[in-house]
Nucleic acid binder design. Structure first.
Lengths: 259, 259
DNA sequence: CAGTGGTCTAGACCACCTG
DNA sequence: AGGTGGTCTAGACCACTGT
């Protein structure tokens, strides 16, 4: 393997190589991957570098390691990228479907004083950009997305065709620091708008995800409320005792095929 | 600080020490913790050991690190232990409330051939233990838990007072390898049983979590369907671009106080 | 510029697992 | 007993951050 590509570090390149080998079933589920000492020789790096690569895969939930045993490939489904969690479009594409969107409303206005829907931390008096879109999977209405962006990122949206695709990818490309998200998941009855746009009975169960996206420094950049037709989408969480924190794998899955 | 306690490694002891300092607000949110070189002197260990401790905190989502900057304490709420995610009792206690349970039914029977509710992977013909409990928070009915255990762990339950507390903790103590869980979250209308036990209107939204618990080797040991009153409980997910995989933090939160 | 964390190396000892 | 991963050390160079 060639590690001469200088744009990524050795341990990242090795982790990518091993991840690909696992995902392509070159190392089948339950099998052992080569020992650290073998990998040291194979990639001609120090053991520390190999251990760093293996730590990455371990934290992704791809392998399990323990004393005296070679690393074992996990039985669980593969973790998908974080982009799939933030971005509806990227998620739908990863599931093999076609994403779509219809903009319902976009506006930019100064924040009003009592705005109970918004989480604390938004500086008062700033401009905010509000956006409501209906999101589609294979042309089927699946989710209503009501987002509020802080002006520092939202202003860019006024020059963006919100019917054209992924806002998340667009903002990331323009350097927005959408680094962290906190998601609150619950179930609520469909309101009149849900009923009309998602084509469900009023009062029927809606899977609601309220998201707070912040920069690494902790500034709240986006607040979003996503309302899913629960029969068409759900959320998947995977966790493991091997990790001190739990892992989110596919994060969302679609039931479109199952219908 | 005394690192002489030989029952845990240095990097774990240091991580615990720093975690405690963060949780006790000794290092407030947004502040910088001491640099690696400072910690090296303070704990009299090598830099590698410090980095291992910091990696743990980073993966727990407690701190953020980047080149040229000292580690920063995250603005996000603290990650809770994985036990809080698996165990209703442990979660409720962590939230400062009192958990309770009322056993509705427990049975042990051979698996019937067509059991569409159960996920694939259950060996056919094996005995399974079924258990239905109503779970309470501060004596308020909050969730219905319908679990199916594989006989290898479920048999122990026949000698357990299922009204007494946490099955999860009981099974872990007896050596059960409940290592990994996959959770599927969606919203469904309340059925007759939900309506009666949870004291909600039939058809009102229920937050449903279907869980598959396996050993590290991938054997399915438990299948559970938890149905929450959505106004009393929800699920919290936190993820970060800094991690290739997303982190689940508090995993569940309760709205009992907010009422 | 000095200080910081990210990466990498080359050794070492130990605990654990399987023959 | 030999191989394995877990831990730890002592150095080194680099990229990035602030002043």
């Amino acid at each position: 393997m060639d590690l001469s590509a200088a744009d990524e570090s050795k341990h990242v390149a090795i982790a990518n190589h091993l991840r690909h080998a696992i995902e392509s079933r070159e190392f089948p589920v339950g099998s052992e991957i080569p020992s650290e000492s073998t990998l040291v020789k194979q990639f001609d790096v120090s053991r520390g570098t190999i251990r760093q690569a293996l730590a990455t895969l371990r934290h992704e939930g791809l392998i399990h390691t323990s004393r005296g045993r070679r690393p074992v490939v996990h039985a669980q489904p593969l973790a998908q990228s974080i982009d799939d969690f933030f971005s509806f479009s990227s998620w739908v594409v990863a599931q093999g479907h076609i994403p779509g969107q219809r903009t319902i409303e976009i506006s930019r206005r100064r924040r009003e004083s009592p705005e109970p829907e918004l989480p604390l931390g938004y500086p008062e008096g700033d401009f905010l950009v509000h956006l409501t879109r209906l999101r589609l999977i294979d042309d089927r209405p699946t989710m209503i997305e009501r987002s509020t962006f802080h002006d520092s990122v939202g202003q860019a949206l006024m020059n963006f065709d919100t019917d054209s695709g992924s806002i998340y990818e667009y903002l990331i490309e323009r350097g927005a620091e959408l680094d962290e998200g906190t998601h609150l998941v619950d179930a609520v009855p469909a309101n009149a708008l849900d009923s009309e746009l998602l084509q469900v009975e009023p009062g029927s169960p809606i899977l609601r995800v309220r998201r707070n996206t912040t920069s690494a420094a902790g500034h709240v950049l986006e607040y979003s409320e996503d309302r899913y037709r629960s029969d068409l989408a759900n959320i998947r969480i995977r966790n493991s005792r091997a990790d001190s924190a739990a892992l989110v794998s596919a994060s969302r899955s679609t039931a479109v095929n199952a219908r």
